[in-house]
């Protein structure tokens, strides 16, 4: 555990909580892509199946349980409790174009050809692109609520901080995981455009709106 890893995890946790609170307090999931949230629920489920097979630490187990629980709670709020506020017409990204190629890639490129390992690899690949339906939705409507941009910023920062964590671990522990690193780089690159808008607009007090 190093400072980048810890702040990365906390940033991830903050993102998840911000989104849950935003939906809960406003009683609305307007502007939120339900498809991205379903993908994140799939990501956590596929990755944390090792909860059943191995124990690493209390920290590790509790974070995994919290992430999974919050992911399903978010999906429940969007598709059940506040379904009437869900903007399905603008959430039109075709997720099969992500899930199918990512599934194929996980079968082809993995560390070990075993069910749990392939599911872990699948979750790593899927996470790297799971935000695309959300970014697509924002580009389609041309705007995002400020609280939604804080969510996206924390979520993007989490993997960016993990990149620093992997550099750290490579130098001090000789540890690296090529699958996680490449996917983490892809994931971070997808946020670059958003990071630019966040810094130049949202942090200066303006609402995030895109030119038509």
């Amino acid at each position: 555990m190093n400072i980048f890893r810890l702040t990365g995890d906390l940033s991830h946790l903050a993102a998840i909580i911000i989104l849950l609170l935003k939906i809960w307090k406003s009683r609305s999931c307007a502007g939120i892509s339900g498809k991205s949230q379903i993908l994140f629920a799939i990501v956590f489920t596929a990755r944390y199946l090792d909860l059943l097979t191995s124990f690493i630490s209390v920290y590790n187990t509790s974070m995994k349980v919290i992430y999974i629980g919050c992911a399903y709670a978010t999906v429940y709020l969007i598709y059940a409790k506040f379904r009437a506020t869900y903007d399905g017409n603008h959430d039109s990204f075709r997720v099969e174009f992500l899930v199918v190629p990512v599934g194929g890639l996980a079968v082809l490129i993995n560390h070990t050809f075993s069910p749990l390992e392939i599911l872990w690899t699948f979750s790593i690949y899927l996470e790297s692109v799971a935000i695309l339906p959300q970014l697509f939705m924002i580009s389609k409507t041309g705007e995002a609520e400020t609280i939604t941009t804080h969510y996206l910023f924390c979520l993007g920062m989490y993997r960016t901080l993990y990149l620093f964590n992997w550099v750290w671990r490579f130098y001090f522990e000789g540890f690296f995981d090529m699958i996680a690193i490449v996917a983490g780089l892809v994931q971070t690159v997808l946020y670059c455009d958003f990071f630019y808008l966040y810094v130049t607009k949202v942090l200066k007090g303006k609402k995030l709106s895109l030119p038509a």
Partner: peptide, 10 residues
């Protein structure tokens, strides 16, 4: 260098 899945990570 050890290469392996970072299962201690989240």
């Amino acid at each position: 260098c050890p290469i392996g899945a970072g299962k201690d990570e989240l």
